[in-house]
């Protein structure tokens, strides 16, 4: 039993390595999940491929079209990017809820996504932001909406030889914003019992014209809640719209009972968090400070 480590410096080299490898290959970004799994003996890979020496995989670029976030960019860098925080506050607050300050120095969006935990904090926020994963592999590049990456706990849609190089986020429309909330028993350093993200775009009158709602930890994968978005589109987020959002969120939940929360509790929390996240997103879109309406 041996374990080899590689740190390719180009995409082609990385793809060749992944394609040619035999046995279990694990991709190392920040390593905040992988190293823990290695130490506990839960995974026994034959090859660990560190992506961080591949150009472009670290850092955030703001362009005319929006943002490009390198797949292995650590949470600390994401948290300090003023432009991204203004455009996509939900992503930044979600990414910065992962682990501790120390973990933030390493933990990445691609790692959080590809670890494929239903409770991953950044994923619902990425989904509602409309983030596109740029996947590279033996057949070149393909652009995949983030909600199509995870297909089950610990499983992704990435094919053999593929990995995520970067994420693309569109330039947000005027009067757009987002929010992510999670429920944990402790105040920080914990795994989400439920997570909820909402992104909205308002018209000049404050009516929601576009919305995306996503829930985490209430199903085998993060959910894009289309009915939830439809419940609030066309409204100013009045009580009736919030109640419909709450009901739509609860309706899609298919959670498990575990030591972190029961099925009933998770379903209830999902509805409340969706309402609260929507309220914050709307207030942010209106240029107001985040409030606490629920």
């Amino acid at each position: 039993m041996s374990l080899s480590y590689a740190s390719p410096t180009t995409v082609n080299e990385a793809v060749a390595l992944l394609t040619g490898a035999t046995g279990l290959t694990k991709i190392l970004s920040g390593g905040t999940d992988l190293l823990v799994q290695l130490r506990s003996g839960r995974v026994k890979p034959d090859i660990i491929m560190d992506t961080k020496k591949i150009p472009g995989i670290l850092g955030i670029i703001e362009t005319e079209a929006g943002f490009v976030i390198g797949a292995a960019t650590p949470g600390a860098v994401i948290g300090e990017h003023a432009g991204l925080a203004a455009a996509y506050p939900g992503i930044v607050e979600a990414a910065n809820l992962i682990g501790s300050t120390q973990v933030q120095g390493r933990a990445s969006l691609a790692g959080n996504l590809c670890n494929a935990s239903p409770a991953a904090d950044s994923v619902p926020a990425m989904i509602t932001a409309g983030a596109i994963a740029i996947v590279v592999g033996p057949n070149g590049q393909r652009a995949v909406p983030v909600e199509q990456i995870v297909i089950g706990p610990g499983r992704t849609s990435l094919a053999r030889g593929e990995f995520i190089l970067e994420f693309k986020l569109p330039k947000p429309a005027a009067r757009s914003s987002g929010a992510y909330l999670r429920f944990i028993p402790r105040t920080e350093m914990d795994i989400a019992v439920v997570g909820a993200a909402v992104n909205v775009t308002l018209d000049a009158a404050g009516v929601i014209t576009h919305a995306r709602v996503s829930l985490g930890a209430v199903a085998p994968t993060q959910l894009l809640v289309v009915d939830g978005a439809n419940a609030i589109i066309g409204s100013k987020l009045d009580d009736a719209a919030l109640a419909k959002l709450d009901a739509a969120a609860r309706a899609v939940c298919n959670p498990i009972d575990d030591k972190r929360g029961t099925i009933d509790f998770r379903i209830k929390v999902a509805g409340v968090l969706a309402r609260r996240a929507a309220a914050i997103a709307v207030q942010r879109a209106l240029g107001q400070a985040a409030g606490t309406k629920h």
């Binding site: 028993p185 402790r186 105040t187 920080e188 350093m189 914990d190 795994i191 030591k259």
Partner: peptide, 16 residues
């Protein structure tokens, strides 16, 4: 014991 680690066996963090 089913939670013999500091991720599952909760003690307060500073924010608590």
């Amino acid at each position: 014991p089913m939670n013999p680690n500091l991720a599952d066996y909760h003690v307060p963090v500073n924010a608590d």
